[in-house]
């Protein structure tokens, strides 16, 4: 993807239910069935597949309570050195 909207699309295309490629406009109705019913005329099949994939993933959200438990975990572990994971570190910088 090389268009100008790439960065915006990356932020959370899945949450917003909007297409993330080639500047396709956001659907007026984000529900999967409505999206499927109105695919783009110039790329109906691929866009329909992409919309269905976004709809399937969009319903999977971070569980309630995970944020609070993660903060508690971080505070509990903050004083403990992190060890044992060899391939997480400098190479994580992309």
């Amino acid at each position: 993807m090389t268009h100008d909207g790439q960065d915006e699309a990356r932020r959370d295309a899945c949450h917003a239910g909007r297409p993330s490629q080639e500047g396709h406009p956001a659907p007026a109705d984000r529900s999967p069935s409505a999206a499927d019913a109105a695919p783009r005329a110039d790329a109906p099949r691929d866009e329909r597949v992409d919309q269905a994939i976004r709809a399937a993933f969009a319903s999977e959200r971070m569980p309630a309570g995970l944020k609070a438990s993660t903060l508690a975990f971080i505070h509990a572990r903050a004083e403990t050195p992190v060890t044992g994971v060899a391939n997480v570190g400098a190479d994580a910088d992309t």
Binding site: D12, C14, H15, F57, E60, R61, M62, P63, L66, S69, T70, F73, I74, R77, A78, V82
Partner: peptide, 26 residues
Amino acid sequence: DAVWRVCLMRMGQRASAQDVFQETFL
């Protein structure tokens, strides 16, 4: 949400995904 999806789709189990999620933010 994005990190959670990555953890869940790779680990396959919610308990394991939560562990990795927490470790990621640590």
